[in-house]
Design a protein around this nucleic acid. Structure first.
Lengths: 126, 126
DNA sequence: CCGTATCCACCCAGATACTG
DNA sequence: CAGTATCTGGGTGGATACGG
């Protein structure tokens, strides 16, 4: 790394930066569309339009926006085929696949506790 | 269950309802504040004000809002002590603790891939 | 201390239209 | 087909105030 002379002060600064970066990553990832896209991609590679069909209810805009975010964070790889009509494929990278494992767990949880939640809501009064 | 005579049609209807319910639960849970609150609660039981301090940056409003949601879905239990000043304790229920296990994994992921993400961003150009 | 209600500024997401 | 830009309404969350 660069410029690491005054260890005490810069260590604290590093911690703060790391913290804020961690929170930023968390915010990026902990949102419904991102997680649904990751789940949709799974092991496959899909084109933009296939993803659009796969992730029910997502708009063109939200899809591109989240795909950019995922590319930026190195979660997905974007491969452009210079054909006509154009074709763009998206695939999860290794970090993306690791993240998907946790998303799978979340989906599993939803399935497992579906009944609990339904009845909890009834007790609560919808 | 009630009113289940015409099996074919109501089965389809059930699937649709189950699906929309699943998506609703997913949306409830897949949001940054909910996940951070769950993580903050952990095994402990905390009062409202302690949670407020623990979950950095959350507003009074967002905290109550998410806690209500979690109570409604049976993820957390709310215990009011009729003292003065009032005191309200929150604890994760069993479903909530199960969910926390997946959140822990997500946090672990963030920590593990921190470096990957940082460098991916540099490659991308911030 | 905890909860709710009101107000309002801001952001976000959808719609639309246009490029390559 | 995929991506970008612009516009706009409605939702969202912060601030504030007040009640239990």
């Amino acid at each position: 790394m660069v410029t690491k002379e005054l260890s005490d002060l810069s260590d604290e600064a590093d911690l703060r930066r790391a913290d804020s970066l961690a929170r930023e990553i968390f915010s990026d990832v902990a949102n419904k569309w991102a997680l649904l896209i990751i789940e949709a991609l799974g092991e496959r590679t899909l084109r933009f339009s296939e993803l659009r069909d796969e992730v029910e209810g997502i708009s063109h805009k939200m899809l591109t926006q989240n795909l950019r975010m995922m590319e930026r964070n190195g979660l997905a790889e974007r491969k452009v085929h210079p054909t006509v009509p154009p074709r763009v494929d998206y695939t999860l990278t290794e970090p993306g696949r690791a993240l998907r494992a946790t998303v799978d767990l979340l989906c599993g949880w939803t399935h497992e506790y579906f009944g609990h939640i339904e009845s909890a809501r009834r007790r609560f009064g919808t």
